[in-house]
């Protein structure tokens, strides 16, 4: 199959996944194999067929635009789940922009 040369490093970058060097060979082999297999869909005639995104025949489900308070107990559990906190109840994030002198 022409498309089976999946570029693992590029796709892993899109998916924000670090792939260890010892994993790469195995993943490449498995994915080439799988992509070869799924390419068989190319033989199906889908002319004029609408895509199905969803099995439920529903569209535009609305609800009232209301404020629902989060119970404080729930909030505490959520904060405990955070990997790092600062000032008590703020979730601490890694720096997004480089600091001075790091440009």
């Amino acid at each position: 199959m022409a498309d089976s040369a999946i570029d693992i490093e590029y796709v892993a970058g899109l998916a924000r996944l670090e792939i260890a060097p010892d994993e790469k060979e195995r993943l490449q082999r498995d994915l080439d194999h799988i992509v070869d297999y799924i390419a068989e869909l190319g033989e199906v005639d889908v002319t004029g067929v609408e895509p199905t995104a969803h099995a439920a025949a529903l569209s535009n489900v609305w609800r009232e635009d209301e404020i629902v308070e989060t119970p404080s107990q729930m909030r505490e559990v959520m904060l405990k789940n955070a990997p790092a906190l600062m000032d008590g109840d703020l979730v601490k994030m890694p720096r997004i922009l480089p600091g001075e002198g790091e440009h």
Partner: peptide
């Protein structure tokens, strides 16, 4: 690759339904 794989798969999904 979207059209060749994902969109096509959604269409074949219609045929399966």
């Amino acid at each position: 690759y979207y059209d060749a794989y994902y969109l096509r798969a959604q269409k074949v999904r219609t045929l399966i339904r």
